[in-house]
Design a protein around this nucleic acid. Structure first.
Lengths: 132, 132
DNA sequence: TCGCACACGTTATAGCATAACGCAATTGAT
DNA sequence: ATCAATTGCGTTATGCTATAACGTGTGCGA
């Protein structure tokens, strides 16, 4: 799937996420876009839904927040599983992909005849800088 | 760490989770315990916090729910990472542990000098029965 | 017996997410 | 040209998830 042209709201939300240094909650995004005319959470959530669908934004389930994909040009959906390391001090997120982990998980799921659809792999802790 | 004696509220919450066939939200637990005198969310959350600390209950971040550990007798915290396959039809959860995946993830984190503290691995999809 | 730690109860509030309505613009088939 | 279907948008209201802040009671060691 190739990413279609983004609408005005989608672009605004995506830009905010791209500029952010750390994941943002939907309500934080809303606040940052009030000057651009955003009034209600739904405006943010609707844009996010699409951006997630296009694979240019990721949702971090463990912190109810959203980040721009680390490589929005390629299509993240085709990379297999995505994992995240989230620093609890500075908020920074490192996104990574590991085929070994993918295969191993997929094999296990297969052995259970479990049809995987969505996956969440999130490690919380402290990044190199903050752990010092 | 060995699990200490559970308090009354902790026992009530743990029993509800143990009897449940699927993960429960905190508010669902609350409703199930109204007859036992529960009135407020905090009673549930406080018990859950302890049960999570003891490792006899897991939190499923991607669905804001809680499940009893699949093997509460051993100590789950010493098993390395825990992963879950969550069926979106029947709600059933399969808990599993894979050292290969652990190592692989841990190696990667190490290479980034990232100090891991908590991990979340959750796969949503359809179980063997429901995928048919 | 004083002080501390801990579980508990209650009220209030904060934070995250979606339902349901209606309008406007676009597209594309008839 | 026109109608129907689709999609995005705006608004109000509501529901679900989680915690803050206060106070009470109980047990236990110094």
């Amino acid at each position: 799937m190739t990413t279609p042209m983004l609408t005005k709201n989608q672009t605004l939300v995506f830009d905010v996420l791209t500029r952010a240094e750390a994941p943002l909650s939907a309500y934080t995004i809303l606040d940052k876009l009030r000057d651009q005319g955003f009034r209600a959470p739904l405006q943010v959530y609707r844009a996010l839904d699409k951006l997630l669908e296009y694979g240019v934004v990721h949702r971090l389930e463990s912190i109810n927040s959203f980040v721009a994909c680390a490589h929005p040009d390629e299509n993240c959906h085709s990379h297999g599983l995505v994992a995240f390391a989230i620093c609890e001090s500075c908020g920074q997120v490192i996104e990574f992909h590991d085929h070994e982990v993918d295969h191993r998980l997929m094999d296990w799921l297969k052995s259970q005849k479990f049809k995987a659809e969505k996956s969440t792999i999130e490690i919380r802790g402290h990044c190199a800088k903050c752990a010092a």
